[in-house]
Design a binder for these strands. Structure first.
Lengths: 345, 345
DNA sequence: CTGAAAGCGCTAACAA
DNA sequence: TTGTTAGCGCTTTCAG
């Protein structure tokens, strides 16, 4: 079927193209009768307008894009739906766009902005160093949500929502120490990772240091470079390695909840009971953590609030051209049954 | 910053727009010198072409879209990456597009096709009744992958890749029966679901009937309408309900692996051991199933092959205009430790 | 090798 | 209330 255009519809209906345009866009200045007649033809012939032409012509759309780096990350996935709801609630159209690892986020964002005449955008995930310059040049409001930056770079000076990974790593380990643990194993991301994993590791070290416990490299298991960082597989392999190495530890900090499920398995296979023989703490507070056996104690990222804040910040920038703001959330400890107090020996 | 156009670049470089076009698109018929000069300006000014204008003008792109209904379904999520790899391997550009539940897939697909001048598309997930008519009208090759259809409608007569849910439900339960179980509980999707969940339920009933075991409604737990079908929460609630009701069962069939993790929890809380007191079998064979304790016995959907087949079918249609084909895969049983033989009593 | 000019399908002035 | 027309930014003939 040759592609139907607005001209064809106009011809069929014996009206001008602008009349058809008015009909399909629900614009005023058209009689109900003609409108109805046109819409009937539109239905009958299954006419669907070409968005490229539309976007090209339109001065501005009503769309806000969520640009996601790491679409296979379950943590981000749980945010998609919420973002859509919040954004629609504010009266905007919602567009989800995945950027693959080979692409440059800012370039993709720019393309998308031009293509769709975006009103604003939220960048979710990934890692960026000094993005504000290029992003500001875009000329539309944006918010970074859970975008990592390496330790070498300062927190970007632009709208940013997320948690402080170093601080939360610190809090997590501090909790373990408060529970009497001193030999604390760590299942981390890739060693080459200089962002999230590195920051939480830094927090781990700081907590140790503060408690006068020397840092021992043999207690940390990095992810194999060919294994997904925050996956059960990494947890399994990491815990396995730790156990096999023979180092003693009474607690284990896994950098994500998904990691803990693999760690649970390795521990189970080795006959090490959680939490009697080894306490385990996770990170993220995903739904799954609640259903593990034993229930996982974990640091919960306030996803809902982070989403709401991101949208709010964007709205402020949209409405008032407000100055960039940052919202750094605290993770909250969810105590379940995987961590126990260690008796003094 | 006012949006930079190709004209601006042309002006800056003192060349015609077509020359700029040739440069940025790597087309022949341009001297290396001018090209280099132009590209330098492009870099310097961060010029990025407007895709809408591009798409509008271009007769055809090289893009194949993956159109996903249910982007938050972990089963589909695990396919994204594979699809991208396979499609790129065949030399196509890849585009992931999420369709929300409120939208009509075929409409979205049509819009996208017109907008991006798609070469072909793969529809992943969702449920469709008699889609072939409207889809065929699009005039570009397509493949349905894991698209459900209700029992009221026949398998669509078009390229289709997936499993036969009724058959696999049957096989699953048959295996349980072969292992000596007769009182088999079922944690299903929503009762109103007339597709995947209904089909697997039908298979469950058929296996029972074939073995001369009467179907007992009190053994099946449907998902609460306000709970995600194939989630841990559903598994927890469902198993809890079953246990509380006091019906006796020696095995439990959960319609997804994620459901089993909630079920494990409910069983654990009730002091029912898996598999000694109750066998549990899952469905999907996701990575997680391997790391559960005890290791989950489950029916594994051959995801990799399904992805490859989908791409293959599309390529055939693209290259040769081949007739529609279907590829129905069998799930394969992965035996781990959650199902045990029931002794005759 | 390069530039001028004609649209792609649509929306938004402007006329009628 | 309607129709005519001028572009949106780009690619692609077609001349030079």
């Amino acid at each position: 079927m040759a592609q139907l255009t607005i001209k064809d519809i106009a011809k069929i209906c014996n009206v001008g193209v602008s009349t058809v345009s008015r009909a399909i866009n629900n614009e005023p200045g058209i009689s109900d009768k003609t409108k109805e007649r046109i819409m009937q033809v539109v239905q009958e012939f299954h006419y669907i307008p070409n968005n490229s032409a539309r976007n090209l012509k339109m001065v501005e759309s009503n769309t806000i894009a969520l640009i996601v780096t790491g679409i296979d990350n379950i943590f981000f996935q749980s945010m998609f739906g919420q973002f859509e709801v919040e954004l629609r609630k504010m009266g905007y159209d919602f567009l989800l766009h995945a950027v693959s690892w080979r692409e440059d986020v800012v370039t993709v964002a720019t393309e998308l902005m031009k293509e769709k005449r975006l009103k604003g955008m939220i960048l979710l995930g990934g890692q960026m160093e000094r993005p504000e310059e290029r992003l500001d040049a875009l000329g539309i409001p944006y918010v970074l949500c859970t975008v990592a930056h390496s330790a070498d770079y300062p927190m970007p000076n632009c709208p940013w929502v997320g948690i402080d990974d170093e601080l939360e790593g610190y809090h997590t380990v501090k909790y373990l120490i408060r529970m009497g643990h001193r030999d604390i194993a760590l299942v981390a991301g890739q060693e080459a990772d200089n962002a999230v994993s590195a920051q939480r590791l830094a927090g781990y070290k700081r907590a140790l240091q503060e408690a006068g416990i020397p840092f021992r490299p043999e207690l940390v298991a990095f992810a194999n470079p060919d294994v997904t960082d925050f996956s059960p597989e990494n947890g399994y392999l990491g815990a396995k390695k730790l156990i096999a190495s023979g180092v003693k530890f009474s607690a284990m900090f896994c950098m994500s909840d998904l990691i803990t499920v693999g760690a649970y398995k390795a521990l189970d296979e080795a006959g090490i009971r959680v939490p009697q023989d080894c306490s385990v703490i996770g990170f993220d507070g995903i739904e799954l953590s609640k259903y593990m056996c034993p229930g996982l104690t974990t640091m919960h990222q306030p996803i809902e609030e982070m989403v709401k804040s991101s949208v709010e910040l964007l709205m402020q920038a949209l409405d008032a051209g407000e100055k960039p703001k940052q919202k750094i959330y605290q993770a909250t400890l969810i105590e379940r049954d995987s961590v126990t107090k260690r008796e003094e020996s």
